[in-house]
Write a protein that binds this DNA or RNA. Structure first.
Lengths: 338, 338
DNA sequence: CTGAAAGCGCTAACAT
DNA sequence: ATGTTAGCGCTTTCAG
């Protein structure tokens, strides 16, 4: 691997000049500049990013931490984040902490240290059970800006999220509007902010329609397929059977739909199902899933905007910037399942 | 952010000593070592990876480039790769080049330069249309070991893949064994090695059963849902109608299944469908998809093994190591769709 | 068992 | 318009 010194020698200039033509950081004679370019091409030179980063004390890289790459929602936002970051001149490295149960905590610990060591310009965190306030604090203490996606607010972090509660109120109003009175809910993973906000929206949606929530109609899910499948099986045993179920996310809804098929219960005729997220798959199953769009494009775009701004605005020492919070719009997508 | 110098000062030792206790690279008096640890804890010190990487000329990081994060197959192998890499002490950064058509080439160009600049210890490449031999060559010339997943062999790169042809021969034998004679095929994306290998397996599977391939039964897909949906629609217009279709991958198969549902054609009664990959989703739709396991666990594991070995075995100057090639096992998974 | 000091490859004052 | 040079924070001879 040739270094800048090699290029300088070949072009008969100093490394300073090479650096400046590379970065366009001061005017250099066209002829000189040309010689440098030729040398670069001949030597197949490429800047050593490690050295550059050390010198400029910046990495032009963000870390993105997601709980689960197997739920398509996260790849969907990850892709947007990568595009937007590239457009803004940053790279992003994805840390996904879904692993065979048990190993997760270790891996997360490992990631956390790696993230601190790598000196990312910002870290973008999707809500995860493992991402505790303590974890945030470590990062914040090290001066890294944090952008939260969903989860709970933190005084020293920017945050972008959708209004889960309002979105679910929308689906409840829709379901009630279609005449459903016995509406069940399969919850998300216990302990997650999005789970409880959606649950609350479910309950209040019922109340608002003058229906008293029936605890029998609330079963625990996990945001995973299995949770939906098992939860639906339990719901199908209830009498009366719910005429509609709101699943905490699309994966859960898919599990619920499969449970219905396996039990020879027709969707949406015997039971309506609505999910949450509007992952691509929602439109690609039959019946197509009614759901709410989670704003993956907007979330990705805003997260990067916040990250870039947090990074560039950062005052050298101390001076706390005002943290921002942005709510992206949701939208009920009516399809065939409910 | 405190530096090693700060730690040294606080502990009353030299930076050399701090470095050595951190890396366990020479024996140091227990008492001294303890003082250093205390200072590290107090200051919340964490190694500056950038500086370290520059000095040791290694990044302990691999790049993984995948064509498409929205096809669950790739997240599935990415997750395994990350775990295995973490276990071996490496990080991996994922570059996904799926973007709204057209932008792809630019983004890929951008990624390629970023990858060269970042001095990854190895790059792992899943087959992509954009990853040309020229692209490989640039990386290889820069001395970065390359590990190919699937695709076509390259003399200077390791490679891990499954035997697509043999796998498809297995599915054809299975279908023929169930009495199917009119078997159609929805192909993968044009120009990809895995597409043609699977197509060849399809044709030869027919021939081996004494059936002459009917060009009408071969329709072009794209490895995407849409390709499967559209392809199936065309197949359903054929007379006679095929009694079975082999889709180039699971996403395609899902599209095909949806097309059948929409056309009121029953799967598997009127037409059997089999896919390829065995993504998690395959078991989570109804009817559950018959498919072939693509060895995502094995591919991930082997890719990292090759990457680590290519990185550590690398001879300082020139000396070409023997490139390795590993074939991971496939397995027909019979479910309900065919 | 420990320290001093030379760099890794680059950028950015500070010269000229 | 260009060159010299001092580091960025770390690891690792080389000395002791």
């Amino acid at each position: 691997m040739p270094t800048m010194k090699d290029v300088a020698r070949h072009a008969g200039v100093s490394t300073a000049t090479v650096s400046h033509v590379l970065n366009g950081t001061r005017t250099v004679q066209p002829e000189t500049s040309e010689r440098v370019r030729i040398a670069i091409a001949n030597l197949q030179y490429e800047t050593n990013g490690t050295a550059r980063n050390l010198r400029v004390r910046t990495t032009s890289t963000f870390a993105l931490v997601v709980p689960d790459l197997s739920n398509p929602f996260f790849p969907e936002v990850a892709v947007v984040i990568q595009q937007e970051a590239a457009r803004a001149g940053y790279d992003v490295v994805i840390y996904s902490i879904d692993v065979p149960h048990g190993e997760s905590a270790d891996l997360f610990e490992h990631y956390l240290r790696a993230i601190r060591r790598k000196r990312y310009d910002a870290v973008i965190y999707a809500e995860t059970l493992l991402v505790t306030p303590t974890a945030h604090q470590q990062l914040i203490d090290s001066g890294t800006p944090i952008i939260l996606i969903g989860g709970t607010p933190h005084p020293q972090a920017d945050r972008v999220y959708i209004d889960n509660y309002a979105a679910v109120r929308d689906v409840m109003a829709y379901l009630v509007g279609k005449g459903h009175r016995t509406i069940a809910h399969i919850t998300g993973a216990a302990g997650m902010a999005s789970s409880s906000a959606r649950q609350q929206g479910y309950r209040d949606g019922l109340l608002a329609a003058g229906i008293v929530p029936n605890p029998e109609f609330e079963v625990a899910g996990s945001f995973l397929y299995e949770g939906g499948y098992l939860g639906m099986q339990r719901l199908l045993e209830r009498t009366p059977r719910p005429s509609a179920v709101f699943a905490a996310n699309d994966e859960t809804a898919l599990g619920a739909m499969c449970a219905c098929v396996d039990a020879h219960v027709s969707v949406p005729d015997e039971v309506a199902i609505v999910g949450f997220d509007d992952i691509a798959l929602a439109a690609n199953v039959r019946p197509a899933l009614t759901t709410v769009y989670h704003g993956q494009r907007e979330i990705g775009r805003e997260a990067i905007r916040l990250a870039v701004s947090a990074h560039t605005q950062r005052t050298p020492e101390g001076g706390e910037e005002q943290k921002q919070t942005v709510i992206v719009p949701h939208r009920l997508i009516v399809r065939d399942s409910g």
